[in-house]
Amino acid sequence: MRRDALRSFGLPAPDALIGIGVALALVAVPLARPGAYLLGFLFTIFMYGALAGSWNIIGGYAGYLSFGHAAFFGLGAYTTALLLFYFGWSPFLTLPLAGVLAALFAALVGYPCLRLRGPYFSLVTLILGLTMYSLTLNLPFTQGSSGLFLPFLRVDVYTSHVIFYEVMLGLLIIVAAVLRQITRTKMGVGLTAIREDEDAAGTLGVDATRLKLQAFMLSAFLTGLIGGVYSYYKSYLDPSFVFATSISITIVLMALFGGRLAWYGPLVGAVVISIVNEMLTTHAPPQTARIVFGVLLIGVIMFLPDGLMSIAQRHLPTLAVRRARHPATRDEVA
C-alpha cells in the first residue's frame, strides 16, 4: 500500500530512488577532499561497474555471453588516445567518437557473429578480442609494441583525479540508467524472450536479429566510451592493458557474480569484487590473498548461484522468469 501511495505522488520506484540517492552521494564525494588514492580506487570501481553493466545488455539480458568485450574497450581507448597523440584533440571531446567507432565495429562483426548461439558466440567473441590485440600489436600507426605515451591534463594532479572521477561516475550513471530503462521497456521484454527461447520469441513477434544487433551495438557503444576515458587517465597505453582477455573475463565474472538479471546486479558485483580484492591485497601475503579470493568466489557462487542479487530477486524488479525447478525438465544437465 505504501508503494502505491508513493506512486500517487509521482515519485519513482524504490530502486530508482536508492540509485539516485547513491549517485548524488558519490558525485558529492570530492567535496570532502578525500585522498587521491580513494578517488583512483573509486574510479576503477566505477569503470568496472560501468563495463560489467554495459556487457550485461548483451550478455545478461540477451543471454549472448561475450568473452571479448575488451575489444570494444580497447577500440575506444585507442581511438581517443591516437587522436590525442597525433592531432592533440582532447579525449573529452572525441569521446563520442570512441563510442561510435566501437558501435560500428560491433555492427560489422555482430551481424555474422550473432547468428551463432550459446558457446559458439562466446568463443567467437573471445577470438575477436584476441584478434584486436594482435592487430593493434602489429599495425604500425598504433605504436602497438612500443607503447603510447599521452600528455597529461594541464591541471594539478589532484584536480585531474577529481575530473576523471566525475567523468567515470557520469558514465556509470548513464550505464545504470540505460540498464534500468531497458528493463521497463519493450526492449527488455524482447531481450528476455531471446534469452529464454529465441526461436519461440520469433513467433511472438520479436525481431530477434534486429534486437540482438541493437543490444550489441548499444553495449559496444557504452564500452567504447569507457575505454575512451581510460586511456587518457592512464597516460600510457599498451595493447596488453586494454585488449587483455583478463579484462573480458573479469567483466563477465563481475556481472555473473552480482546477478545478471537485475540492472544493479553487475554494478554490485563490480563493487564487491573490487573491494574484496583490494582488502585482500593490502592485508594478506600475496598468494594467500589470491587463494582466499578464489575460495570466497567458490563459496558465494555455491550458495547464490544466480549472483548476489538473487537474494533480492523475488522482491525487486529484475528480468527473472520463474523456471521449473526439476532438472529433468530442463535442457541443462550438470
Binding site: L253, L256, L261, L297, D306, A320
Partner: peptide
C-alpha cells in the same frame, strides 16, 4: 537458474 554460468564462476 543458469548452471553453465554459475559453474563457470565456480
Amino acid at each position: 537458474h543458469d548452471p553453465g554460468l554459475a559453474t563457470m564462476v565456480l
